[in-house]
Write a protein that binds this DNA or RNA. Structure first.
Lengths: 187, 187
DNA sequence: GCACCTTGCCTACAGTCCATAGGCGATCGC
DNA sequence: GCGATCGCCTATGGACTGTAGGCAAGGTGC
């Protein structure tokens, strides 16, 4: 067996490239160069560029779900919310390319994956520490997701660059604000 | 004078293309085709592809600032917040490509534009209807922006497609939630 | 131990896109 | 009318995606 490539190798390398140069720079040629291989060779392992991108998204989804899951395990209320937020932010800042890969419409297969279901469930389990009526859970989950993802997106796109103070401070306030909002969920 | 192109024409056409096919489909070739012109001809009016994209962003920023400004004029409190949110959402849904152009890191020139300053100021003026301490304004503005933009981004990327109810309902809840949050801003 | 076949990467090529260089003709100032 | 300018053109090069077909190394059947 030669030191041959596999689909997983290719996707992992593409994810690394995404983190280093941005998701938009993920190109079959660039990945091939990094792997010391000619570009067409990748088509044995990856259907096309879109499939490669979906691969990164699926990888990122799994990693993020795992970290968030670990972070919120055994916690509830503000503790859990903080842990959820911290894990998300750490991932977004630590693996920017992978995180970018989550901010897009992915293929059906990825959307239906177990990791995607996990992510959705975890936001829900944070809510269990609060007394939000069951019928309101969807809205609360969507609100939490919108706020945290939105914050990270704005931060990343530089929207906070031209005003003080540092984003971290606002991030903490935001988490606290979400907490008090969930604590007194408006009917 | 022939019916010659101008920078504004090109950008406007590119923006139309973005709305029809997605911001990612904005290509010099495609724009040239739409204008009935050869691709290299566009370089007389636009420095390069990145400048064209920045042009769309600047255009969108101006349009959005104008609509939001009109919507919140003369309103305050929940009224103003609702109007702000409605104008933003209407723009995002009505001009999806232009809206997408705002979700990215734009050139310095765009960031420093008057429209960009306007947008920031408008979020601030919505806050005047609430009793958020001045020192907290930045955080509140960032929170509002994060939540609304984040919601629209998630909606657009299909995150809400696989759960009921329709996004509009959650959108309304979100706006109300933001209102009650601002009304009782946590110290 | 030999022929065979699978497999993994290769070269060659077509199509699209960005971007630059240089040409040509129509229009405008005079 | 005459020349200069200006707007769009053709030609070209380099990068990227994706397809077709080749070649050789490794494993397989006999």
């Amino acid at each position: 067996m030669r030191p041959s490539l596999t689909a997983a190798t290719v996707v992992a390398d593409a994810a690394a490239l995404a983190d280093e140069a941005g998701f938009g720079m993920v190109t079959l040629s660039a990945v091939a160069r990094r792997l010391g291989v000619q570009a067409p060779s990748l088509y044995s392992h990856v259907r096309d560029l879109e499939a490669l991108r979906d691969g990164i998204t699926a990888l990122a989804l799994g990693e993020l779900a795992e970290r968030v899951g670990g972070a919120i395990a055994g916690r509830s209320g503000l503790e859990a919310l903080r842990a959820y937020a911290a894990a998300t932010r750490a991932y977004a800042l630590g693996s920017p390319g992978r995180w970018q890969s989550l901010q897009r419409r992915a293929g059906e297969e990825v959307v239906r994956s177990e990791a995607a279901r996990n992510m959705a469930a975890q936001a829900g389990s944070v809510l269990r520490g609060y007394e939000v009526p069951p019928g309101e859970h969807v809205h609360a989950v969507r609100l939490i997701g919108s706020t945290l993802n939105g914050f990270l997106a704005l931060e990343r796109s530089g929207s906070f660059d031209h005003s003080a103070p540092a984003p971290e401070e606002s991030w903490d306030r935001t988490v606290v604000a979400l907490d008090s909002l969930l604590r007194a969920w408006p009917a």
